[in-house]
C-alpha cells in the first residue's frame, strides 16, 4: 500500500493508505502506483484523486508531489476537499 499525505500550510488534509494516486502535474496528470521510483514533480491546477479503501478528491493548485519509498506526499499551497 502507498502511504499518502496531503498537506497545506494550514492543515494536514489527508493521511492514510491508498492503492493509487492521480495528481495534476504541471503538464498533465501523473499516476502513481506501488513501487514508483523516487520522484518530485511540480503540480499545476486540477483534481487530485486518492484511490483505495478511503478514496478522496481534492482541488489543488501549485505545490509539488514527492514520492519516495512508497510514501506519497502532496504538498500544496491551496487545497480543498472536492
Amino acid at each position: 500500500m502507498l502511504k499518502v499525505s496531503v498537506v497545506s500550510p494550514e492543515a494536514t488534509l489527508f493521511e492514510g493508505e491508498a492503492t493509487s494516486v492521480v495528481a495534476p502535474a504541471f503538464d498533465g496528470e501523473v499516476g502513481i502506483l506501488l513501487n514508483h521510483a523516487p520522484m518530485i514533480t511540480v503540480l499545476g491546477q486540477g483534481t487530485l484523486r486518492v484511490e483505495g479503501a478511503t478514496p478522496a478528491r481534492f482541488t489543488v493548485s501549485g505545490g509539488f508531489v514527492q514520492v519516495v519509498d512508497n510514501q506519497v506526499r502532496v504538498v500544496t499551497e491551496q487545497a480543498s476537499r472536492a
Binding site: A25, A37, M39, T41, V42, Q66
Partner: peptide, 26 residues
C-alpha cells in the same frame, strides 16, 4: 536521494522558494 525531477531542479526551486518564504511568514 536521487529523485526523478519534473520538469527540472531549477523549475521546482522556482516554484518552491516563494512558498518557502511565504510559509516562514505564515
Amino acid at each position: 536521494r536521487d529523485y526523478l525531477l519534473y520538469p527540472s531542479a531549477d523549475a521546482i526551486l522556482t516554484e518552491l522558494l516563494p512558498s518557502y518564504v511565504r510559509n516562514a511568514v505564515y
